[in-house]
Write a protein that binds this DNA or RNA. Structure first.
Lengths: 160, 160
DNA sequence: CTTGACCTTCCCACGATGGGAAACCCCATC
DNA sequence: GATGGGGTTTCCCATCGTGGGAAGGTCAAG
C-alpha cells in the first residue's frame, strides 16, 4: 500500500501523511527499494484514529498523547478522559468568545437600518462611540478601564 | 507621537502597527528625519477603530473594507451592514462546528469512567468503533458514506 | 519506448501575531 | 563631551495545520 492508497483509505491527504511522519506523530514509514513509502492496514487504522481526532478539533499535540495512550495497554482511562476534558474546556472558551462577538455584532447589525444613508451604528460603535447599552465589556477585556491615557487625545482611546 | 505612544494609546502593538502599514491597512506613516514613524491623533483614532474591529473577530480583509466605508461620506449603511452580517454568518458557522465537536467529546467523556482501568469509550470511538448512539454524522462531513473502500481493510476506514 | 499517473524532496504561502538580533537614535545624567 | 538606557529601525524566524507547486525519479499499461 503506497501513500496515495493509504490517503484514500484513511481520508488523510498524502501531504499530511508526510507531515505527520516528519513531526513524529507517525513512525517513519517503511520504504520500497525506490523510496516509496509503504503502509500497512494497521497504519491506516492509526491514520483513521488521527483523522477522527482532528475532526473533533484536537491539536496535534493532544493527538500525540491520545495515540500514545491508545497503544498503551496499561493506560488508565482517567488519563484519556483528562485529555478530552481539557479540549472540551478549550472549545467552551472559544465558543464563549465567538458567541460574545457574534451577539455584539448582531446587535449592532440589527440596529443598522441598512439603506442608502451613511449613518450606521456599526461604524459608530467601532469608532469608539459611547458603549450603546450593554456593549463594551462583553467582548473587550476589562483591564485598566477608567482613566484616559494622554491629554488631548481621542478620549475613547485608552491603552488597555 | 512615535510608534510606542501610538501603540499605548490605541492598544495595538508596535509590531502590528508596522505590519498593518506593510499590508496596506494603514497608509504609510510620516517619518522624522531619523526615520522614526510619526502618528497623529487621527491615526490613533483609526487604530482604535481597527483594534475594536479585531476584538470583534473581523478579518483584516473585512476591516480594510470597513475602514474604507468609514472614511467614505458617501457610503450607504447597507454596505456596512452586509459586511457585518457576512462576519456574523461566519461566526455562526464556526460556533456550530465547535459546538458539535464539544458535544460529541463531552458525551464521550461522560461515558468514560475515568479510573485506572484501560477501557475507554473515547478511544473506542476514535478507533472507529461503531458509532455509539447519535455520534457520527454530527461532526464528520457526510460525503461518500455508504460503501467501503478496499477489501480487507478496516471497514470503518473509508475514504471520504 | 512512450505516456501518464504516481511518488520523492524542497520551498513557499496562508493569517495574525510574537520573539529576537543588529544597528541606529534620542535624551538625560555624569 | 562621553556614556548608558530605552526607544526605534529593518530583517528573519516561529507559530499551526494545511495546500500549492516545481523538479526529478518510478511504475505500469499501451
Amino acid at each position: 500500500m503506497n501513500i496515495g492508497q493509504a490517503s484514500a483509505a484513511s481520508g488523510v491527504s498524502a501531504k499530511m501523511l508526510r507531515y505527520y511522519e516528519e513531526i513524529g506523530l507517525l513512525p517513519k514509514a517503511a520504504r520500497t527499494e525506490a523510496g516509496y513509502r509503504v503502509y500497512s492496514a494497521k497504519d491506516v487504522n492509526t491514520l483513521c484514529f488521527i483523522r477522527r481526532a482532528r475532526d473533533l478539533g484536537l491539536s496535534i499535540e493532544r493527538i500525540k498523547l491520545l495515540v500514545g495512550l491508545w497503544q498503551d495497554r496499561e493506560r488508565s482511562s482517567a488519563d484519556v478522559k483528562r485529555v478530552a476534558q481539557e479540549h472540551v474546556a478549550e472549545l467552551d472558551a472559544k465558543i464563549l468568545e465567538l458567541t460574545a462577538m457574534r451577539d455584539t455584532l448582531q446587535e449592532l447589525a440589527d440596529a443598522c437600518h441598512g439603506d442608502h444613508r451613511p449613518d450606521c451604528p456599526i461604524l459608530h460603535d467601532l469608532e469608539g462611540g459611547r458603549p450603546s447599552p450593554s456593549r463594551r465589556s462583553i467582548v473587550t477585556n476589562d483591564v485598566g478601564r477608567g482613566e484616559v491615557t494622554a491629554a488631548g487625545l481621542p478620549a475613547q482611546c485608552h491603552a488597555n
